[in-house]
């Protein structure tokens, strides 16, 4: 992470994410959407943001685009094949909707890549959120790698016991059956241990808690937010400007 990114308060980053999401939903021009998605992609690569199920997300975005192309008959026809007709409206809407989907997902990845759960929990607590809930992101993320490791171990144990799971419906049901119980048992034992550890160190004793390293909103965070809001507002106005409408 670079120094500039580290100084931005997580709540400021969360508010920026919300503002960008609103802008994404308001964009209706496919060229503007493509430009915005391209900028988000640049940010994603810049901050090395990675997400889960990337292939599945790309496939889903492609499905959205194709569905619009195949079934959306608005605009002028471009090509045809038997009963299917490709129109300019279908292509434009396909690009716009798929672009919205990908942009929202990638912006979330950038937020996660630039914000540790501990920082977010700390910022929420400092901002006055009840710490019992503000602590949830940090606690959840603490155990994501643990459960990922345990799931991998359960899968390996299945292989060594001769379980062959294919991608048929029967295979998926068997996989769920033989994965659920081991994961449930380990999760339940961890829940008790973590609850005991936290209660045993006074978590929940008082309505508030102090912090060794509180994350406070500074004037530069507020300036960052104000500048971001101004930039996004200008971008929104630009998309509505008749002279800048491409399609």
């Amino acid at each position: 992470m670079d120094a500039k990114k580290e100084r931005v308060n997580p709540i400021a980053k969360a508010l920026l994410l919300v503002m960008c999401s609103v802008l994404v939903l308001l964009i209706s021009d496919p060229v503007h959407m493509t430009v915005f998605a391209g900028l988000v992609l640049v940010a994603k690569e810049r901050y090395r943001a990675r997400g889960v199920m990337t292939k599945g997300i790309m496939v889903f975005a492609g499905t959205i685009f194709l569905a619009q192309v195949v079934f959306n008959r608005s605009g002028d026809p471009v090509a045809g094949w038997y009963v299917f007709e490709v129109t300019t409206g279908g292509i434009a809407d396909g690009v716009t909707i798929a672009g919205k989907f990908l942009s929202l997902i990638m912006m979330s990845w950038v937020f996660v890549a630039t914000t540790t759960p501990a920082e977010l929990s700390s910022a929420l607590t400092t901002a006055g959120f009840p710490y019992r809930y503000a602590f949830l992101p940090a606690l959840s993320m603490r155990f994501v790698p643990v459960f990922r490791f345990e799931l991998a171990t359960v899968r390996e144990a299945q292989v060594t016991r001769g379980l062959r799971l294919d991608r048929s419906l029967r295979g998926i049901i068997r996989s769920a059956r033989y994965t659920t119980m081991p994961m449930l048992m380990t999760a339940m034992s961890r829940v008790n241990s973590v609850a005991a550890s936290m209660s045993g160190r006074g978590f929940g004793m008082y309505a508030t808690r102090t912090q060794l390293k509180p994350t406070r909103m500074t004037s530069s965070d507020i300036a960052f937010l104000a500048a971001s809001a101004a930039a996004l507002s200008l971008a929104f106005l630009a998309t509505r400007c008749p002279g800048l409408q491409v399609l």
């Binding site: 540790t116 940090a138 603490r142 241990s193 936290m198 978590f203 102090t210 060794l212």
Partner: peptide, 26 residues
Amino acid sequence: DPETQFCTEIVEDEVAFGPENFRMPG
């Protein structure tokens, strides 16, 4: 098993967790 009782990611944060709950000053 210490692994199951950690609720943060960094050593300093983990050790500070208890005093924070008791509202000790920074």
